[in-house]
Amino acid sequence: MTVFERTLRPILFRVGGGDAERAHEFTLSRLAGLGAPFMKALRSRYAVSKPVEVFGVRFPNPVGLAAGMDKNGVALASWPAMGFGFVEVGTVTAHPQPGNDRPRLFRLRDSEAIINRMGFNNEGAAALAGRLAAAGDVGIPVGVSLGKSKVTPLDEAVEDYLTSYNLVQEHADYIAVNVSSPNTPGLRTLQDKSAIGALLGALAGKTPVLVKIAPDLAEPAIAELLEVCLAYGAAGVIATNTTLARDGLAPADQPRAAEAGGLSGRPLTEKARKVVHFVHEETGGRLPIIGVGGILDPDDASRLFDAGAALVQLYSGFVYRGPALTRAIVRAFDPAADRRPS
């Protein structure tokens, strides 16, 4: 057990009387206020360099912070200090929005999982663009996850995404199109062949665009989506988002199973690996994959790399394990390994 797990995590989990979202906000505010000396100390402890190049972008190492942790980009400078090779901010929408009613974020400790129904709460794409412009080069690539504003009808979704894209793309190393969150009504229908084709066609430009897919799609639906991604020049796929399934929960967490929202963490580990493997096999390796879902130790990350992921991202694993997990995954990563799935 790491120092974070023994000392800091118990404190953070008690913040706000155990309210997960208040603890999240508290942590972000503290990270945003860290001074240069402390940043330097963190970097010397956690940052490990193992550079890789994916979809034309050079990453100091292959482990990134997933979208949802720093939606509004308030703690950009802290993520490289904690060893991340890239950070994905957002999901951000064209219109600022408060998200769904609280409570909307729940820890399932025995299962090492999280349920969220945040609903894309964010300050809007314009605010994020201003923050990214002010931050400048933070030392690692920055991706921006885009979602549909809740007030925007589905038949106007392309224009909504395009508004956000035009605001942020010059500040982003890549763009992630989030059409797979379960917490915005109707959003997952944008994974359909015609919808994703129209969206990718509108967002074509110099900035790499990746599509984030749900782990709950059947393989034929994933295959159809991948055909469109290849046809429209998507730079890659992020696999996966949270799941609506409730398989694999520990007995103590079963009362939480009825909570609406997407589940992440340990119960998603094997499902994410299978989706990554399928995407890699289906495309013959032509679409780079960012693997995300249920990474709580270096072996989990290694299995995603072996399944075909070029990069990985952490969310729940970072909540439960802290920055030592980032360092451990990078140290275990062999950039020269043959990653062809068996």
Rank of each mutant, 00 (worst) to 15 (best):
A41M: 14
V179F: 04
L105A: 15
Y161I: 05
Q169S: 15
A41D: 11
R188C: 06
A23T: 09
G248V: 06
V52A: 12
I115H: 05
R9I: 08
F305C: 10
F4M: 04
I290C: 10
V312D: 04
T27D: 10
F333Q: 08
T207D: 03
T93S: 11
A94H: 12
G205S: 11
L249E: 03
T152C: 14
D306V: 07
K206M: 03
A75H: 02
A324M: 01
E224D: 15
R331F: 00
E219P: 00
L199I: 06
A336K: 10
E259S: 09
P103R: 05
T27L: 15
V275G: 04
A223H: 06
G119A: 12
V237S: 05
S302G: 07
T7W: 13
L31N: 11
R131H: 02
E25C: 05
R327Y: 03
V237T: 13
G236T: 10
F26E: 14
A125M: 06
A36T: 10
R331S: 06
D299G: 07
A157V: 14
V57P: 10
E224G: 13
K40S: 13
M1W: 02
E53P: 00
K148C: 01
V57D: 12
V63R: 05
G147R: 15
S302N: 08
A272P: 12
G317L: 08
V179T: 11
D297L: 02
R246V: 08
N241R: 09
S180R: 05
S44C: 03
D216I: 08
P37A: 13
R273M: 01
R266S: 09
V54R: 02
G147Q: 12
P51V: 14
K206V: 04
F120L: 15
N121H: 07
L225P: 06
G16Q: 10
F278A: 01
Q254M: 14
V319F: 04
A113D: 09
S302Q: 14
P182K: 03
P37M: 09
A202G: 07
I329Y: 00
L230W: 02
A301H: 07
A235F: 00
L108I: 13
S316G: 08
L167D: 01
P103T: 06
R131Q: 07
L108W: 08
D299I: 03
P62E: 04
A307V: 13
P335A: 15
A214H: 01
I290M: 14
F84A: 06
G291N: 08
P10G: 10
C229Y: 04
V319E: 03
S316A: 15
G265A: 08
R6I: 07
G68A: 13
D334P: 03
L296A: 12
F13P: 03
A126L: 07
D192R: 01
K148E: 12
F38N: 02
D155Q: 13
G294Q: 10
A252M: 04
V279Y: 01
K40E: 14
P341E: 08
L105V: 14
Y174V: 12
F278V: 05
V228W: 00
R9L: 15
Y161P: 07
G147V: 13
K40Y: 00
A239S: 14
K50S: 14
T207K: 04
T240M: 11
G308R: 00
T184W: 06
T91K: 09
A77Q: 12
G322S: 02
T283Y: 03
L146P: 02
A47K: 01
E281G: 01
A309V: 14
R321V: 01
A47E: 04
H95M: 09
K40W: 01
